[in-house]
Each structure stands twice: as structure tokens, then as C-alpha cells.
Design a protein around this nucleic acid. Structure first.
Lengths: 199, 199
DNA sequence: CAAGTTTTTGACCATCTGGTCAATAACGTA
DNA sequence: TACGTTATTGACCAGATGGTCAAAAACTTG
């Protein structure tokens, strides 16, 4: 009976995501979003509720996408777990030294969040933990493989890799070149070598 | 002859810096700055030129301060170079897990910069390189000490530590706890152990 | 084909933004 | 003490912002 929507929600969120990745939450104007999505203001409002809510939707989509991508990158059976991590970090170095002005929505959310408990930072923290979980899984496999010592702290190493990638993202955005970023990625992998029991 | 200023420039920049660290450039309202600095809008404008210019001043002060702090932290003779880096990273873990909502202006500048060549990102890149230089110096000493292999890539390791600290900052802001952050810091140091010649 | 429901459209608005202007105040000097 | 110079003050502004409203449009079903 009702008039059907002309748009697909996920497409709209995607377009919005793009805008947010370039401008951030505060700096993205409602008009940017209207232009990018093709919807009218009111339609946007009806479907999502406002700029902030739309950002949260984009953030959660981004989180899913990021997790999925890393899972795939680390989950293949084509190489040993450690080699997969290596490949992953190297591809990150390439991605982050691309020239576009995008910043992951997670980083945006973190930087633009205002409170300790607001949706932005809690959502992002959850995303970080989710991502760390993916790394941890791969590292755990490595340990079972004997590529990592028995007592390696898989959990903290996982968070460590999240931190390194975050840092690489920022450096890339600062204009640090691909060569340097790749060297950083390679350096970061050394924590996995010669892990001796001491801590 | 002229009427003297009632304020000290560096104090004003400091107060402004505080505001920017909490809100960012775009989100900090001129009114916030007026309130925090105690100056009138026009005085601010006379002395600095505008919000953006004031931010750039704050950014450059922040950069000096950051470099100075790290230099001091890494430059003392109280311990071996490697131990100093260790101490530094651990103190970073503590700093970044403090609960205030500050974000370094460098990170702010990076995230809020819009172009490839704008002042924000170029200033920040210079800051990163400066910081990396400080790390590099300490690492070089370590190498001379024999604590690092002859062929260790001091330059890229230096950038690596900048990346890790940047990542830790973000994670800390996301609410990752002090214990985890400390573990990450300790992990990050392992790249310095067992550096064998391979690359 | 008409009714009912929801989307869409585009005009509208109160508020706040960074920034400006002209008038006034304060100081050192002559 | 009067003058020249600069700082300060507070009113002011054009533009943009996120958000809202009421009317029109579009589709499905009975």
C-alpha cells in the first residue's frame, strides 16, 4: 500500500560513508550528503534520523567491511599464518600510502568523539576489539604451527598490530611515502621473530 | 608610544592549544577560544589572524614541545639507549591511557587536513620527521653501543616508533586500558631484540 | 479506479558561524 | 599634559548550518 522507497538503504550508507571518510562527521555538511546520496534532506531524515545517526550507520558498515577484509586477508590457506600477516601488513602499507584523502571512519569517530562513553568511541572500541580478535585467531594458528613460542601473548600482539596499522594510516595521511611505510610494516613484523620467553 | 598588549602571546597560544586538543580545529568555536584565552575576538584576530592561523601557531608550539619532551626522555644518560626507549614507550602507554579527551594537535591536523599540500599536513609531516629524527639519534647510539646489529635500519625503525606511538594514542582514546597499552608498548620493543641481518 | 499510506519535494527557519567595523581606551613620548 | 599609535571592546553581518513542515506524488490493494 505505501509508496515504496526509491533508494536502497545500503547504497545510501555507502555514499554517505564516502563523504564521511573524506570530510569527517562535523565537517561533512548535510548538503554534501544530500548531493552524494541523491536523496532529499527529508528522505534522509526519515530513513536515518539525522547526520549523526547516518554516521553511526556508516561506521558500523565500515566496521563490518574492515573486519571482513582483514578476515579474508588473514584467513586464506595459501600460506602459513605468519606469511599471511606479512602479506597483510605489506598491503596495508600500500593502501595507506595511496593518495586519496580518505580516513577510516573508525579513526574519524575516535578523533571526533567528545565523551568517554559516547556511541562514537564505544562503537570504535568494539571495532578495535573485533579486529584484534581476527589477528589473534591468525596468531593463534601460528602458535599452534610452532611458528610462535608457546608462551607468546597472542592477545596483546593482536592489539599491537591494530595499533601499528592505525599508526601507519596516520603516517600515510601525513604524506609518508610508500617505501618508508613498507619498511615500517616490515619492521613491525620483527616482533614475531625470535620471540623468546621473557615477560 | 603604542598601547601595550595586556596578554602574553605564548600564554594565549597555550590556552588555545588546550581548546584545540579537546575539540579539534573545525569544532572549536571562535567563542571557545575567546573564553579560554580571555581575549576579545578582535584582539585574537589582530594578534594571530584567525582561527586557522592560531591553530597553526598552536600546532607548531605543540610540535616543539613534543620534540623537546621526547628528546629529554631519550637523551638522558641515566641508562642505555635501548633502556631509555623502553622507558619512553612505557610512559607513552601511561600517558595515552589517561582519561582526558585530548588528542595531539598533530593528529588533529592530519585528520582535519583537506588537501595534499596544505599547511596542516605539511607541518605535521615535518613534525613526524623531526620526531623520527630524535628516535633515530637514540637508536644510532644503541647501534654504536653494540645493542643493535651493525646493519639495523635506524631510520625506518625510528619512523616505526612514531607509528606505534600514534597508534597507541588512538587506541588509548578509544578506551583501551592501561594494561593492554603497556603490553603493546612492550611488544613493540621486540623489534629491537634479535635483530638479525636479513632484509 | 479510489483510498490509504508513506515517500518525496522544496520552501522555510532559528541559530550559530567566523569575521569585520567603528568607536573607545591605554600607554609612551615629546 | 597633549599627541600618536596600537589594543580593546562590543555591536554588527552575511552566509551557512542542521533540522522541520506542509503539500504533492507514487504506489499497492481492495
Amino acid at each position: 500500500m505505501p509508496r515504496p522507497r526509491k533508494f536502497v538503504e545500503s547504497d545510501v550508507v555507502s555514499s554517505a560513508s564516502e563523504v564521511f571518510a573524506v570530510h569527517g562527521l562535523a565537517a561533512a555538511t548535510l548538503d554534501d550528503l544530500v548531493r552524494a546520496t541523491g536523496l532529499g534532506k527529508q528522505s534522509l531524515y526519515n530513513a536515518f534520523g539525522g547526520k549523526r545517526e547516518l554516521f553511526l550507520r556508516a561506521l558500523s558498515e565500515d566496521r563490518e567491511e574492515a573486519t571482513r577484509a582483514v578476515s579474508e586477508s588473514l584467513g586464506h590457506d595459501d600460506a602459513s599464518p605468519l606469511e599471511r600477516i606479512r602479506g597483510h601488513m605489506l598491503s596495508m602499507a600500500i593502501e595507506f600510502s595511496s593518495s586519496d584523502r580518505r580516513v577510516s571512519l573508525a579513526t574519524r569517530a575516535l578523533v571526533e568523539s567528545t565523551g568517554d562513553q559516547d556511541q562514537l568511541s564505544t562503537a570504535t572500541k568494539a571495532g578495535i576489539e573485533e579486529l584484534a580478535g581476527v589477528y589473534a585467531q591468525c596468531l593463534e594458528h601460528a602458535r599452534e604451527n610452532g611458528d610462535l613460542p608457546e608462551d607468546a601473548n597472542v592477545q596483546s600482539l593482536a592489539v599491537y598490530f591494530v595499533a601499528v596499522t592505525r599508526g601507519m594510516e596516520l603516517l600515510g595521511r601525513a604524506g609518508v611515502g610508500r617505501g618508508v611505510l613498507t619498511a615500517v610494516a616490515l619492521d613491525s613484523l620483527r616482533v614475531l621473530q625470535g620471540q623468546r620467553s621473557e615477560e
